[in-house]
Amino acid sequence: MSSVLHLNVVTRVHGEGATEVRALRDVSFRASAGELVAVMGPSGSGKSTLLTLAGGLDAPTSGTVSVEGVDLATLGNGGRARMRRTSIGYVFQDFNLIPALTAVENVALPLELDGVRTRTARAAARTALDEVGIGDLADRFPDHMSGGQQQRVAIARAVVGDRRLILADEPTGALDSETGEDILRLLRVRCDAGAAGVLVTHEARHAAWADRVVFLRDGVVIDETGTDAAEGLLESGVTR
């Protein structure tokens, strides 16, 4: 079964000599279509490093990171940037919306940067905003939205253009517990609809929305719970 994301024996070392830090050590990790995987660990466990490697924002010291079968190291900077606009969606704790753009403009941006015509991009963005339940707020600016609404915009931006890998870094960190749960519900729906999701969090209650929970300590995967990928696929994809 092909994985949307595959880290194969990945090591990432920052610095060298006495100040050397091994952020990840021989980590192998997969996320398949239709699956939401949570990565849990304390600060310094390597979970954010794992996510930046998966998103092509950083490169491993050794090992390979593949997205939809393509080894990111074989792409140039331009190729990786294109991959981030077309295949990989990122959701951050602090939303990272551009304040001078409306919701629909924020969501359409990655498509427009990729050369999609404005009208087509905006239409796709409106659909994506509808899907996360805030189609009526499309023309608002981020400053005029609540935190929960802004994170919905960020999720719409992460999935627009049919991207199949969603990487979420503590996406509920700044939200109250009910709003945070709505966001997880949305991520869950996107994964049930066929995307692969990776959720980095230190909150067990949020990790519990995932099919699998991977525990990281000191850059090493020490344990894993939940259904395996094949079962996850059966539940969410094949039986539909």
């Binding site: 929305w209 929970v213 525990f215 344990d223 719970t225 939940g226």
Partner: peptide, 19 residues
């Protein structure tokens, strides 16, 4: 760690029931 995994599995079950 064994307990954490077991409790996490239970938490996943409760969350599934909620969903």
């Amino acid at each position: 760690q064994q307990q954490r995994s077991a409790t996490m599995a239970a938490l996943q079950d409760y969350t599934r029931l909620k969903r």
